[in-house]
Nucleic acid binder design. Sequence first.
DNA 1: GCTTTTTACTTGACTGAACAAGTGAATGGA
DNA 2: TCCATTCACTTGTTCAGTCAAGTAAAAAGC
Lengths: 165, 165
Amino acid sequence: MPDHNAPAALGGDDLETWSALATVLEWLPAALDAELLRDSDVTHFEYGILFALANASDLTLRMSVLAGYANSSLSRLSRAIQRLETRGWVQREPDPDDGRYTLATLTNRGREKFHQASPGHVATVNRLVLDPLTQSQRRLLRDISRRILRAIREEKGWQPPLSSN
Amino acid sequence: MPDHNAPAALGGDDLETWSALATVLEWLPAALDAELLRDSDVTHFEYGILFALANASDLTLRMSVLAGYANSSLSRLSRAIQRLETRGWVQREPDPDDGRYTLATLTNRGREKFHQASPGHVATVNRLVLDPLTQSQRRLLRDISRRILRAIREEKGWQPPLSSN
DNA sequence: GCTTTTTACTTGACTGAACAAGTGAATGGA
DNA sequence: TCCATTCACTTGTTCAGTCAAGTAAAAAGC
């Protein structure tokens, strides 16, 4: 009785493709988070922050740059760094060159934490994503992902990766 | 100086594949949510509930079954239905056959809401995911997704889709 | 050179999600 | 036929995230 003949529902192969992808969208991040939380007591978001700082020169980044890397709002990052700071993994100080910036630096303990957490996380990515695929599927997945990302970027008129607030 | 020779980091093609997918994992759900929220003032999760109820016979489902469909904890669903109830889209009543169950039913206004929200959402899925891909890429994406899902399921010893609490 | 604006955050109020501890209805065993 | 247990939720608490103000430093305007 419902189902007007508008383009109001997916069907057939498209439905199967979308529902498979939608399920991945729900479960894969959860699985990744679960491993990090269980083995290292950090969220995937926090791990991303540690990763970015660990790979930065001087283990230091401006908050705004870090927000870009972590694809995060500044306010979310601010709270997250606050938490990492109380755990002793990160320190903040105003940029001496420009007092508006805040520099976040990985401490030694933070560096250790990152190196302790990494192998398990990388192993999980391999186990859940890379290993189950053939070489050509991996290449295809990369291309497919890029096409989807291009469509998303076009949608929002190419917002430069530093979404404010 | 870091980089021990453990399997502690991805590199090369694998890194590109993973980073492309990881970006999709972050942006695609956000883009989908944004459209629904902007055009219809419902979250993707709430839309999923409306969808499930709209496709159920009598527009009615038990909370626990609905939680399975929405891949949600019972407590999260309980709060969400509470919100949908105050908006007049869903009604709850104890199952007359077994007072432990609660039956959630879509109201007429809820049905209208769903039919108003659907076209835009389906169009967004098409625009961001399906249209940018070739026919064979869609098929591949389905297969790839299924492989990843199988790996996730094996990981957690095939938890039957009704994760409690 | 003094105000106004912009930039780069930070913070308070509020919302939604998770976890654990309830509650109340059925069920199962002695 | 009780009592304990299980089931199917619901609710108290806590915590992370968002949005809308803040704040303080630099830049721009006049």
